[in-house]
């Protein structure tokens, strides 16, 4: 079978265990927040989703560099799956963030929060990744242009956060900083466990997507070899690497 499917089972089990442990810690171990009460629990989902999706975008850029350097299609597949998953995670992140903002600040959306605004801009940029791929028919060129886009957009992520942060006075809570943040230990444990859980979830889903796409390509290749070129209809235009 394809190399992508290797280790998938182990990774899936590790993810299930860590996510369960994180949920147990969040709901039964971490104390209630003094100001916000139960609503603050969404923090343990929202922040890891946001962090993992941003890291995933940058990862997509790194894989893009890999493709541009080697021209090997497996890097394109990695870059595509990383960005695809990050997009899904970041939409989750922005919805949970919005719910949290409504509960703790009273508004669904706040322009004065730079982290929120820059996150939205990054999502808007990455929403164009799939239309871009879709509008290029030649698979080679599609991969090439998508890789260039992923590198530029990956570099755009930190720059955009810097500029937007400079432009507003921030009220977003800074629970994480280089000094280790200001959370009590029990909260920190729950947070890091759920960060690990979400990261593993990202890795599992990305690996699963790659395995599925690779298997589809492989199956089509085999069928073409077995029953002849004409028996396998072309896929038509596709966004994913093919």
């Amino acid at each position: 079978m394809t190399i992508h499917a290797r280790n998938l089972r182990g990774l899936a089990i590790a993810t299930a265990v860590t996510v369960t442990a994180a949920l147990v810690l969040v709901f039964f171990y971490a104390p209630l927040d003094a100001n916000q009460g139960f609503v603050q629990k969404i923090f343990y989902i929202h922040v890891p989703l946001a962090i993992v999706s941003l890291v995933g975008y940058c990862l997509g850029g790194v894989y893009g560099i890999g493709y541009l350097r080697t021209g090997d299609r497996k890097w394109d597949m990695r870059s595509y799956c990383a960005i695809h998953m990050s997009l899904i995670f970041s939409i989750g992140g922005i919805i949970t963030g919005s719910i949290w903002a409504k509960a703790s600040w009273g508004h669904w959306w706040l322009w004065s929060v730079p982290t929120l605004v820059s996150y939205l801009i990054v999502i808007l940029l990455y929403c164009t990744y799939q239309p871009l791929r879709f509008s290029i028919e030649d698979p080679e060129r599609q991969a090439q242009y998508a890789a260039v886009f992923s590198v530029v957009a990956g570099a755009f992520v930190p720059m955009n956060f810097l500029v937007v942060r400079l432009s507003t006075q921030f009220i977003h809570p800074h629970v994480l900083n280089l000094q280790g943040g200001n959370m009590p230990g029990s909260m920190k444990l729950a947070f890091y466990t759920s960060l690990l859980g979400i990261s593993l979830l990202f890795a599992t889903l990305m690996k699963f997507e790659m395995a599925a796409k690779q298997t589809r390509i492989e199956t089509r290749r085999l069928r073409r070899a077995l029953v002849g070129e004409d028996a396998v209809r072309p896929l038509g235009r596709t966004v994913a690497p093919s």
Binding site: T128, P131, S135, I136, R141, Y145
Partner: peptide, 8 residues
């Protein structure tokens, strides 16, 4: 080089 260049 895309099909819908005015949109992209």
């Amino acid at each position: 080089h895309t099909r819908a260049r005015d949109l992209i």
